[in-house]
Amino acid sequence: MRRRQLMPWLFNIILVVHVIAGAVALTSCWGSVLTRKGGPAHRRWGKAFTTSIYAASFMALGMGLLSLRWPLAMHPQLTDETLYRGLFGWMMIYLALLTMSMTRYGLQMVANKCNHAANRHWSMVALQIAVLATGTNCFVQGLMLNQPLMIGVSIIGFGTTATYLWYMFKPAPGARDYIPEHLKAMVATGIAAYTAFLSVGLIELFPEHAFNPIIWVLPTVVGVGIIGYFLRTLPGRARAAAKATQSTT
């Protein structure tokens, strides 16, 4: 009983760290989007973004584990233990791993741009398997709890795992194929950060709208627009970079 009473204190400490890291991620992601890709400023903003995302994700993993074990102790204002063990336990654990996966994948695409085989490191594959396993569990729990939100977010993980593994095991990608892979993964991480911000904020301010699908979809719509813009302009950027290189040689 005493341990159960102490758990909310630990949860609140983790939550504070999670919120601070999330706030840094929410602001620094725009620095990465708006600065010249590959330039010093872009790398600095990117480092701040990925570091804060990792911190926020690890804190989310901790909150998910605590909510899984003591769902009502973590959320005393709630009453349905089974429902919130699923939403704040199983789903949060899955989303934390999914965000870590997207972030690591995006970083490794740049780090391994000259060594594609390194993308198949066991830790990269293991992380994709973990996302697939927790996503499948989230999907099953969503069916059992009749929660479309859990079902929907699990499908996102199935899609990212399939596309990431496909590229990781692609025999001979093009010399610049890593660029759209990096872009898509990092913007997807930003989508995850803003989705979490909107949903958690609504839980506190407007609980009746916390699981409104429109709120969860909005960051995705914006993020997909950003991805589409950069993919459409990528060929022109590549030609401009090639001309700049030729003019200096």
Rank of each mutant, 00 (worst) to 15 (best):
M1L: 15
L6E: 14
M7S: 15
M7W: 11
P8I: 11
L10E: 12
N12K: 11
I14T: 13
I20R: 04
A21E: 06
G22L: 08
A23Y: 10
G31D: 07
T35G: 06
R36M: 10
R36E: 11
R44A: 14
W45Y: 14
T50D: 01
S57T: 02
F58G: 00
A60E: 02
S67D: 01
S67V: 00
W70G: 00
W70C: 00
A73F: 00
Q77I: 09
T82C: 03
G86S: 09
G89H: 00
I93R: 00
L97W: 05
M102L: 15
N112L: 09
N112K: 12
A117G: 03
I129A: 13
A130H: 02
G135H: 11
C138G: 07
Q141S: 08
N146G: 04
F158R: 13
F158T: 10
L165F: 08
L165T: 06
K184G: 00
K184L: 08
G190A: 08
A192E: 01
T195G: 08
F197L: 08
H209W: 09
A210D: 05
A210H: 10
L218F: 14
V222R: 04
V224L: 15
I226H: 01
F230V: 05
A238S: 07
A240R: 10
A241C: 02
Q246W: 06
